[in-house]
Amino acid sequence: MLDISRHIDLYKKLSDKLNNSHIFVAGAGGLGSVVLQNLVRLGFKNIIIYDHKEIDPPDLNRQILYDSKDIGKKKTLVARKKLLKINPLCNIKVFEEKITKNTKFNGKIDLIFDCVDNIETRFILDEFAHRLNIPLIHGAVQEYRGQITVIYPGKTKSLRELFLGYSSPKNPQVLPPTVFITGSLLVSEALKILNKDFENSLINKILFFDIFYNDFEVIKLK
């Protein structure tokens, strides 16, 4: 049972969202691990996870849901087991599937987290968010740098419009703190969006940061 008694004032505005929102997390790797831990520790009740990969040794530097005993196991299954240890009251549905253009997403979804590692899948999530008219919280990481923005159908440009022309690196190097910062900021943006606090959110803005230079900059999009 998640005990929030010491933080009750912070949760007052959130309780309805935590109980009733259905959160879709695409990718249970670096960003996904951080996002998922944050979601269950906040007390979100309904979480859907998509990931088709197994845990590899190089994942352990930043994918904080996993440890050396999990090597070779399915990320979704290990993630669910560990997340339920943190908050047994969560309803966590997992799908061991690669997200493609033909993937059918069924059931109620209120918000999507983009925690995948390539631009092609990101564009599929973008199309899905537009089809369902729900927000997409986008994050990406590489080396010391991260970027975060919120795609909100009808209020913002699509992810495709913003990043058309970009080519993802095949094996980007990533420093763990970059992932932890970005994943936590993604969840913080989701809370604002669920609370309809659009003014303070990254709607029509992109946050770029570089922790090597301590450079954090919010770019306004017109």
């Binding site: 996904g32 990481v141 419009e161 913003l162 990043f163 022309g165 690196p169 980007p172 999009l221 017109k222």
Partner: peptide, 28 residues
């Protein structure tokens, strides 16, 4: 590259004003 807030691959022609050359990141 964005020109006055729009990706140049979505624009017919460049306009004077601002050109943003953005190097995104791609890992997850």
């Amino acid at each position: 590259i964005h020109n006055n807030g729009e990706n140049i691959l979505k624009k017919e022609k460049l306009e004077n004003g601002e050109l943003s050359i953005i190097m995104p990141v791609g890992g997850g």
